[in-house]
């Protein structure tokens, strides 16, 4: 029994390679890449044209971070890149994952694949990893392009803090896409038809981006006493409550995290009292402090991703697979 001595634990790289190949040859991926690049180029163009005024703005404590300004400056004609990403990233994750399992099943390749001596979780993991590798390298390329372009255009050296913040932003974006990807893969296991799982995923996305804030608003308004009747402590309490509820939406977590990382002067994601603000000089926070602020958001995103993945795993592992 030596002839096929099982190096089947090396199935992972082979499967990931296969998935990468499949993605890169697909039209879908090409279109997504074009879309992301288009967004990136547009927002970079806008921020480059407004960079001079942004850096010259003496009121802004973040004015010395040229590269962070590149990512966040806008003249309000279009949103900055990280806000764009807030609704492009789900699209990216969903479109790379919504047919991961069910299309293989409908094509009859899934039965063939799991009739090979590989573990089923390797299959799921390879689907997840390959898409994430693609996204991570795409974003990395964009970030590096941005830094390189900025360096060429402005000639200003990049600071260590900016490097850390930009890579932190990169990491958070990848995690955010990872969440939507694992949700989409979960749906692709749950639903037999790729179209159904795509629709459900887009439904969830729309719910969180459009309806969730409206619903929260309506609910809060219906039971919230008039602000004039409330004490300061109560107002604070209700404010906290609303933002906590809003943070059930992954998009909110991402926008909190990316804003804090890209704008060093953001010191809190909740309301601050006057007592807290007294004596504070409007100055950028050190990187570590910004990370401390966004840590709950990041771990929330990672936890949601893991939850989706675990659910996927549980429903896929013992399922009977017929062609």
């Amino acid at each position: 029994m030596n002839r096929l001595k099982g190096n089947y634990h090396t199935a992972m790289p082979i499967l990931v390679g296969k998935e990468l190949g499949a993605h890169m040859q697909s039209w879908r991926f090409l279109i997504l890449v074009l879309l992301i690049i288009l967004t990136f180029v547009t927002s970079m163009y806008v921020s480059f044209t407004n960079l001079r005024s942004a850096v010259g703005n003496m009121q802004d404590p973040d004015k010395s971070f040229v590269y962070l300004k590149l990512l966040t400056t806008t003249d309000n004609s279009i949103p900055p890149f990280h806000v764009f990403l807030n609704f492009l990233a789900p699209l990216l994750g969903i479109s790379l994952g919504f047919d991961a399992i069910n299309s293989e099943q409908n094509n009859g390749t899934l039965t063939r694949l799991i009739a090979q001596p590989i573990y089923r979780d390797n299959l799921l993991l390879s689907k997840f990893a390959s898409s994430l590798i693609l996204i991570a390298s795409l974003f990395l390329a964009l970030v590096l392009l941005m830094v390189g372009g900025g360096l060429l255009a402005t000639g200003v050296g990049i600071e260590v803090q900016e490097v850390l913040r930009i890579f932190g932003f990169w990491l958070i974006s990848v995690v955010f896409v990872g969440f939507w990807l694992s949700l989409a893969i979960l749906l692709s296991v749950k639903f037999k038809q790729a179209a159904t799982s795509a629709l459900v995923a887009i439904g969830i996305w729309l719910f969180f981006t459009v309806f969730f804030p409206i619903v929260v608003n309506l609910l809060v308004r219906s039971f919230l006493p008039s602000p004039r009747m409330m004490s300061e402590a109560e107002i604070l309490y209700y404010n906290e409550l609303i933002s906590t509820v809003m943070r059930l939406s992954p998009g909110q977590l991402f926008s909190d995290a990316s804003t804090t990382l890209l704008m060093p002067s953001v010191r809190s994601l909740g309301p601050l009292t006057m007592e807290q603000m007294i004596g504070a000089i409007p100055a950028p926070l050190p990187f570590k402090e910004s990370v401390m602020i966004v840590w709950p958001q990041v771990s929330g995103l990672i936890a949601a991703t893991c939850l989706c993945f675990a659910w996927t795993y549980a429903s896929f592992m013992r399922r009977e697979i017929r062609s």
């Binding site: 096929l4 001595k5 099982g6 190096n7 089947y8 090396t10 199935a11 082979i14 499967l15 296969k18 190949g21 499949a22 040859q25 697909s26 094509n107 009859g108 390749t109 039965t111 063939r112 694949l113 009739a115 090979q116 001596p117 590989i118 062609s323």
Partner: peptide, 24 residues
């Protein structure tokens, strides 16, 4: 399987090599 399917974007040879490699 009764309803055998292959990766349409790969050549027959590549399909076969993939399975061979998955078998070690």
């Amino acid at each position: 399987p009764d309803n055998v399917g292959f990766y349409d974007y790969m050549s027959g040879l590549d399909n076969l090599v993939l399975i061979g490699r998955l078998n070690g």
